[in-house]
Amino acid sequence: MTDSVRHSAPGGAPLIDFRAVAVRLGEVTIFSNLSLSIASGEFVCLLGPSGCGKSTMLRLIGGLIDPVEGAITVAGKSPHQAWDSISYVFQSPRLVPWRNARDNAALGLELRNPAVPKSERQARAAELLRLMGLGNDMEKFPLMLSGGERQRVAIARALAVDPAIVLMDEPFSALDPETRRRMRADMVELWRTARKTVVFVTHDVDEAIELADRIVVFSAKPTRILDTIALGEQRPRNIDEMPSLRATRARLHDMFRSQQINLSGETVR
């Protein structure tokens, strides 16, 4: 239940730092003595079964909940002070139905920084939507967009505020497999141009391998960090064609199997 190893970022001052953090919800301990640090510009995937507390990690970083023990710093500040250098992409796109794609992408910026003039908000939103491949759908309302397109708008909305950190909470899990595969490829492209620090929660092993600089593997409850795996391979990655990635995939599956974890959530008996 304790992590003696510090799961530290490779070199440089950490942008996000968890030191011996414990979280309890009522009588239930989500995790205790958890330490982890994430470097600036790193793409970190938090991988683990559903309900193991990965999303709780994001909430801690975003300052939406507080740890009962330990300390968390984000860019050297407490999460409560650093909230405006973070933006979220949720599992569902959470677009407002009364705005078209461009105005939805601009909404985050309008909420966060009303000093930015409308023309600039719109221009930034439009640029990001083009980057997301929605250049021709700016005037469309959410009802007229597919699930994948809606999630792209949500990503554009998150990036439009130019955050230091993007927190993504299983953003592709509600999409069909084909769309999910394309979204992953685009995500890699986007990250290479935008170079944000990304903390990406997933329970999909392949998704983590394709995207991450580093995978942090969580156990089922009571949650602890099983391992962290650094991946140096060039992106885009095709797992089936790269032996080292295939080995990582096998290693992860073995790890979960030995822990009797079924990644869809339940512990295997």
Partner: peptide, 10 residues
């Protein structure tokens, strides 16, 4: 969910 989204931005 929309309220939480708004809270995450502002």
């Amino acid at each position: 969910e929309l309220m939480e989204m708004a809270g995450s931005f502002s």
